[in-house]
Simulated scan of single mutants.
Amino acid sequence: MLGLLIDRDLKLLRFMGQWQFMQVAQCARYLGCSEQVARRRLRALKQLGLVTVVVPFADMKQVYWVTTEGIKLVRGVVPANSPKLGPKLSQFEHDRILVDIAVDFAVANQDYDIYGEIEMRRVDAEAVAQNESTRFAIKRWQAARQVNVFPDMSAVKNGRRFVIEYEHTQKDRARLQSLMSAYANSSEVAAIKYYASPAAFPQLSRVYEHLLPNLPHVGGKPKVQIEQYEEGSE
């Protein structure tokens, strides 16, 4: 099978395996090619059983995700308790826009290693199985106990970890405040960027302003930054 693949295919499979799904235009931007070329490579990957495709809504474009065979090819094994990939209709817009943000970051910062939540959970699960320290889980308080949380995305360079979160809808204020504080106070995270849709940004701003006086600083700026995200603005 490897003889039928090119480096670009493997690069795309590794990246796709970190997200619930990707669309053709996103794949093309990530690879730096035309949508026609991206569609042709995705068609080849589908024929090999490495990706699958659906049209989730009648008026939507196709979405692709990596199959179990594709994950096995790029990871060597299929992780135990690995999540089911593919579009989840209840969070479709969040996941779609998150990939847009991830692709834009990856293209602009090619010297960073990009991790989606799926990949972060896999890496940490392997560490736990080998009695090693986890790399990505952040502890936060919930109902008087500490729980592990994972961001939407991490970017790592020279051992420094940059975290990105995307808020598509309003979260419970107390939960959002707890999460933001956990990231800000984590010694394992160098900086955090929150993006939010126009609908979610007002609440995010209120929580941020409340925490701002006590936020640690990095390079003269608050360790946590926020920005309203509108499609086409990046």
Rank of each mutant, 00 (worst) to 15 (best):
D172G: 03
D172C: 09
R173C: 01
R173D: 12
A174G: 02
A174M: 06
R175F: 01
R175V: 11
R175Q: 08
L176Y: 06
Q177T: 04
Q177L: 11
S178E: 15
S178R: 13
S178Y: 04
L179T: 11
L179I: 07
L179V: 13
L179C: 05
L179R: 09
M180N: 03
M180F: 00
M180R: 12
S181W: 12
A182E: 04
A182T: 08
A182Q: 02
A182V: 03
Y183M: 01
Y183N: 09
A184W: 02
A184S: 15
N185G: 11
S186N: 13
S186T: 07
S186Y: 03
S186F: 03
S187R: 14
S187G: 14
S187Y: 04
V189K: 01
V189D: 12
A190D: 06
A190R: 10
A191H: 09
A191V: 13
A191M: 14
K193R: 14
K193N: 03
K193F: 04
K193Q: 13
Y194P: 08
Y194H: 11
Y195G: 10
Y195N: 01
Y195L: 14
A196D: 00
A196M: 05
A196V: 00
S197N: 09
S197P: 10
P198I: 10
P198E: 12
P198L: 13
A199I: 12
A199Y: 13
A199G: 05
A199Q: 12
A199V: 15
A200D: 08
A200C: 05
P202F: 04
P202R: 05
P202S: 00
L204S: 12
L204P: 04
S205Y: 00
S205V: 07
R206S: 05
R206T: 09
R206P: 00
R206V: 06
R206W: 03
R206A: 10
V207H: 02
V207W: 08
V207G: 01
Y208R: 06
E209A: 15
E209N: 12
E209I: 06
H210S: 11
H210I: 01
H210L: 13
H210Q: 06
H210F: 04
L211E: 08
L211C: 05
L212Q: 15
L212N: 12
P213W: 11
P213V: 13
P213A: 14
N214S: 05
N214R: 12
N214A: 04
